[in-house]
Design a protein around this nucleic acid. Structure first.
Lengths: 234, 234
DNA sequence: GTCTGGCGAGAGCGGCGCTCTCGCTCGGGA
DNA sequence: TCCCGAGCGAGAGCGCCGCTCTCGCCAGAC
């Protein structure tokens, strides 16, 4: 290890087998997560599943929380990919909105424990929010693009042009449709609110807060999301 | 213990001291919860704080989850009381709506771990949703009463009168303003959606999903809740 | 061909939830 | 007033958990 040369990206045999075992561990952890949830995910059980003694796993993940962080990032990526795949850029904005919302809900219902890990209570003392931001933004980017396309196609009414970075940050404004005369802070607040309302709706259903209030979750969800689409002008 | 007579509600000395120790345990548990969160709440640490050996606590709570269930119910009651106290039945509906929403957010910010216990990921395998329902409904009852008062004061426009118990249950419909020609299923869906949107907004802020997007949480929250009020017609 | 860095195993620490057994004590029935 | 058993707290212990440290080995880098 004298120097870091040009060909360092050529993985050595050691690095390859290490990457493979790391993947094997995260796969086992993901299975555990899906079965018993994040709270009951045990590094020792993961180790048993991959045929290692528990201490050996620490060669690959410095702590249980690091392993969970890995699963969080992977979860955000999977959810983001599902949202991106559900978008149909040619369609009308409200059709696209509903399709993406449905995809988010479907992913959540199919992966309840992973969804809870992403959007439920933060599990450890405080994991690593910074690493997770890019992956976590993917759904927001999809929804923001729908809003921007709607504005560019002239669907949204003219707006006042209010702009206050302390209300909605510049970064978020760029994602939420970008610069367009039909998008001002009122629209951005509505969009942000709609975004969190989607997760509020999915979380309530998944965490049982709709028990006794909503019977047909599918139909309720579609109607709620349609109301939201109307709120942001789609 | 031959019979359960008329004066059984007169607590015996034994029952009184038992109730006192039970309260002491739940108080200690609540302090622990506020400090370290539900995931790290340890029955042994609670026992240490009240000066008991861990096994003695099992005389009062059959398991850690039962203790958590107690804290969940207490939390719902505290939040519900805060919401009820914030309501001002004489004021305009949208003023009342905003006041109650602010109270919910304020309580959540003041008791983040308790809020996470109530509205974050369900902690155990599955606690006891049935016992918690009455306490959990209190906030919804307050918001529903505001909607009903608005309808009775003629603020809401006439509605189509749609009624579909599989979309919104009869129980929920009774809470959400009750029977009134201005309240149909569209309004009920909007109200239910607004309710979950409130928690989506608070949860996003509390769980860090607004980091990088919203700087001034107070102002954002007020504007978002105002948009919601407009959506349900207040 | 050597040798060293990375590896897995093993033992062990403290803490956890929970169980069971054992004496004590004190309140309530006689 | 007495006595006795229900209810109690303590203690030991089981099998988990996360995490640490040490040791011997072996293969891959030079």
């Amino acid at each position: 290890m004298l120097s870091k040369g040009i060909l360092d990206h050529v993985t050595t045999a050691r690095e390859r087998v290490r990457a493979e075992l790391t993947a094997e561990i995260t796969d086992a952890a993901r299975r555990q997560l899906a079965e018993v949830g994040a709270a009951a995910l045990s590094l020792r059980a993961v180790a048993r599943e991959v045929g290692l003694v528990s201490s050996a796993v620490y060669r690959y993940f410095p702590s249980r929380d690091e392993l969970l962080t890995r699963l969080i990032i992977d979860g955000y990526d999977a959810l983001g990919a599902a949202a991106e795949a559900a978008d149909r850029p040619g369609e009308a904005p409200r059709v696209r909105w509903l399709a993406v919302c449905r995809a988010v809900r479907a992913w959540a219902l199919a992966h309840p424990h992973e969804y809870a890990l992403l959007y439920g209570s933060p599990v450890p003392g405080y994991s690593a929010p910074r690493d997770t931001v890019p992956a976590a933004s993917r759904v927001a980017v999809v929804l923001g693009r729908i809003l921007g396309d709607a504005a560019r196609s002239g669907l949204l009414p003219a707006a006042s042009g209010d702009r206050d970075p302390s209300l909605v940050s510049d970064d978020a404004a760029a994602v939420l449709g970008g610069d367009h005369p039909a998008i001002d802070d009122t629209v951005r607040v509505r969009a942000l609110m709609a975004w969190s309302a989607v997760y509020g709706t999915v979380s309530f259903e998944l965490f049982g807060h709709f028990v006794g209030s909503v019977e047909d979750g599918d139909r309720y969800f579609d109607r709620a999301m349609t109301e939201l689409a109307a709120l942001i002008g789609l």
